[in-house]
Design a protein around this nucleic acid. Structure first.
Lengths: 207, 207
DNA sequence: CTCCATTTGTTGGTCGACTGACAAGTAAGT
DNA sequence: ACTTACTTGTCAGTCGACCAACAAATGGAG
């Protein structure tokens, strides 16, 4: 056997990825309470014992999953310079992301973040992600203030907190009762709403 | 025994209230996963069997608890007539409520609402409450538009959704990492923010 | 290159703990 | 007496963890 079908490294990585995918799916579908080691293993196409063998414990699996779930970003924003335009596109992009049959990791992120309310371990993990989110917004706001396109008396900290909370609040409401929100209309409304709020007047921001 | 210390009705009602209180405490502390029939009974000062006897099943207990948790209102608003002032006080009052070592029912409400994301039964229960919340806001907005204190082109539906989501998003963030938010500053910011947004200009609403 | 000892991947059995439900029993109120 | 409040015993199911075993891959010695 000089040329085995799959090397050990491959086998391990494939299995580990499959297990994490399965875990994300389960959380996305039914929340943490549906995440049992047996289900993860079997949905991934393996046996129930493998998860423990690789991740050590259920808690370790959840932590790994939580880290993996934090990678969700709004695409197409990296090229934009910080400023109000990027911020508005971030808002719009975030909301747009919630509509498309959300990838499991997207749903899993929100559900795990909610679980963090009653789990200090998770809370610590998610603090970073939230802070990174707010940091991006902070950059946009300070850049806008510096270039004069955002009113200088806008409270930066409070604004970032308000935006993050609003976006996540909408995302959660969409999880609970999707039909109670008109997401396309909300996208239009919120971009316009924040455009007005940042400039301080009723005028458009660009042009 | 012609004069018993407590009548049967009293005993039942006391016990039932104690059980519901205990259930709310448990959910507030650790979420639904900590809500076991045995714990509820024993924390309430009874035996583990009583919960089933009164409520029939765990699901029935959770539903009762969910209904009880929906009674949280911002006090001191009933006397105000619908309009932007009442709306702003509702926002401020809602946020103020999140600071004071939240009564268990307050926390329990949010946590159960989050659980509703992965539990259709709960989702149905909470749809009403959210709708009632939004209805109040709707009344304020339409009244303000009618009396001319709110800009007439404000999209009412989207605004109510945005406010509810924002308030709940903040409340959840406070549950997860309370220290990451400056609540007093947020109260000031948000009332001012919405005052501006409703009028459409940078002017104050009253006076 | 090949064989074999060793490591690593993977499985299924099993144990102890916990949980919800129920039923049979005791005590208190009517 | 009889109903209602309340407790205790118990059962069946589920779960996380550990373990012993088999299978596949690896690497070094001949």
């Amino acid at each position: 056997m000089t040329a085995p079908a799959r090397t050990q490294k491959q086998r391990r990585e494939e299995a580990e990825a499959a297990l994490l995918d399965a875990a994300a799916e389960l959380v996305a579908e039914q929340g943490l309470r549906a995440l049992t080691l047996a289900r993860v293993g079997e949905r991934a196409g393996y046996s129930r014992g493998l998860v423990t063998h690789y991740f050590g414990s259920k808690q370790a699996l959840v932590e790994r999953l939580a880290r993996a779930a934090q990678s969700g970003f709004v695409p197409g924003l990296a090229d934009l310079p910080p400023g109000p335009d990027r911020l508005l596109r971030l808002i719009d992009g975030y909301l747009a992301q919630q509509t498309k049959h959300e990838r499991p990791l997207n749903r899993a992120f929100l559900l795990l973040w909610m679980e963090a309310a009653t789990s200090p371990d998770l809370a610590r993990l998610f603090a970073d992600r939230t802070e990174a989110f707010r940091t991006d917004l902070r950059e946009d706001l300070t850049a806008g203030i510096a270039e004069g396109t955002i009113r200088p008396d806008l409270p930066v900290e409070e604004t970032t907190a308000a935006i993050v909370a609003q976006l996540r609040g909408i995302a959660i409401q969409l999880l609970v009762t999707p039909e109670s929100l008109d997401l396309p209309a909300l996208r239009v409304f919120l971009t316009d709403h924040w455009r007005r709020a940042l400039t301080g007047g009723g005028h458009g921001l660009t042009r």
